[in-house]
C-alpha cells in the first residue's frame, strides 16, 4: 500500500498544472524511493518526467512498487477541492483501483478534514529509456525570465531558434509578419549573485516549437530557476528543481529539410 503525506497540497496542484496539458493519463510509479511519473505527449514530441522524493513528504510509506494509473483531468478536479496550504495525504491499496486523498486544514474555529476518492485505471504506456547525455551547453536562468521570453516570441512565430555561443544565449523567432531576437549575455556580476550561468563546451544551435516551451514554462511556479541543457541534434532538456523533487521536460528539435 501507499501512504504519502504532503505538507501542502499546493505542490501537487502546481505539478498537475505543469503536466496536464501535455498528458491526459499517466502512471504514478510509487516505490520506496518516492513517486515518479514519466509520459510522452500524444505526438511523441515531448516527454515529461516528474520525481517526488520520499524524503520530501511529511510521512511516506510504500511497501512494494505500485503503479497508479491516473486520469490527470480527474485528479486536477479533486485537487481543486484542496486549499493550497492544506496537508494532503494520498493513499492507495495494493490492488491500486482507488486513490484516496485527504485534506486537513486547521482554521481558527475548527479542524476540517475532507476525504475524496477517485478511480484509478490500467494504463499501458511505453516507457522510453532516456540515455545519459553529456550536453554541450548548460544555461541556468530565472524561470520567470524564460517564461517571458518564450511567451513573447510565441506571439510572433511558431518556432524559436536557440543559439548558445561565447556571446551568450540568443532566442530567435522569425514570424511571417515580424521577427524578434533576445540575447542574454553572460554577466559576471549577475552570475556572482547566482542569478544565472552559461556553460558551454561548443556552440549549439537548435530549433524548437514554442507551443511546447510555453507549456513547460507553467513549471515556473515550482522553481525560481530553470536549467536548459543542449547539444546539437538531440532533444532539449528543460529542468526545474524544487525541494521535494524535480520536473524535467525533453523536447525533440525541429530540423531543416
Amino acid at each position: 500500500m501507499l501512504e504519502a503525506k504532503l505538507s501542502e497540497a499546493a505542490l501537487l496542484k502546481r505539478l498537475l498544472d505543469a503536466v496536464k496539458e501535455l498528458v491526459s493519463d499517466a502512471n504514478f510509479e510509487c516505490n520506496e524511493e518516492g513517486i515518479q511519473l514519466q509520459a510522452m505527449d500524444n505526438s511523441h514530441v515531448a516527454l515529461v518526467s516528474v520525481k517526488l522524493y520520499a524524503s520530501g513528504f511529511k510521512r511516506y510509506r510504500c511497501d512494494r512498487p505500485l503503479p497508479l494509473g491516473v486520469n490527470l483531468g480527474s485528479l486536477t478536479k479533486v485537487l481543486k477541492c484542496a486549499k493550497d496550504d492544506d496537508i494532503c495525504t494520498l493513499k492507495a491499496g495494493d490492488d491500486a483501483d482507488i486513490l484516496s486523498l485527504t485534506y486537513e486544514a486547521k482554521s481558527a474555529y475548527a479542524d476540517r478534514i475532507a476525504e475524496y476518492e477517485m478511480k484509478l485505471m490500467d494504463i499501458d504506456a511505453d516507457q522510453l529509456g532516456i540515455p545519459d547525455t553529456d550536453y554541450d551547453a548548460s544555461v541556468t536562468m530565472p524561470s520567470s525570465e524564460f517564461l517571458r521570453i518564450v511567451r513573447d516570441l510565441s506571439l510572433l512565430g511558431e518556432s524559436v531558434r536557440i543559439e548558445v555561443s561565447k556571446e551568450g544565449i540568443r532566442f530567435v523567432s522569425d514570424g511571417e509578419a515580424a521577427n524578434g531576437n533576445i540575447l542574454i549575455k553572460q554577466n559576471a556580476e549577475a552570475s556572482g549573485k547566482k542569478k544565472g550561468s552559461i556553460e558551454m563546451n561548443s556552440a549549439v544551435t537548435l530549433t524548437f516549437s514554442l507551443k511546447y516551451l510555453v507549456n513547460f514554462s507553467k513549471s515556473s511556479s515550482l522553481s525560481k530557476k530553470v536549467q536548459l541543457m543542449m547539444s546539437n541534434d538531440v532533444p532539449l532538456l528543460v529542468s526545474y528543481a524544487f525541494n521535494q523533487g524535480h520536473i524535467r521536460y525533453y523536447l525533440a528539435p525541429k530540423i531543416g529539410d
Partner: peptide, 14 residues
C-alpha cells in the same frame, strides 16, 4: 521549411 522530429528517434524503449 523546418520539420518537427519525434523523441522515438533519440530515446530507445526502456
Amino acid at each position: 521549411m523546418v520539420r518537427q522530429q519525434t523523441l522515438g528517434k533519440f530515446f530507445g524503449k526502456g
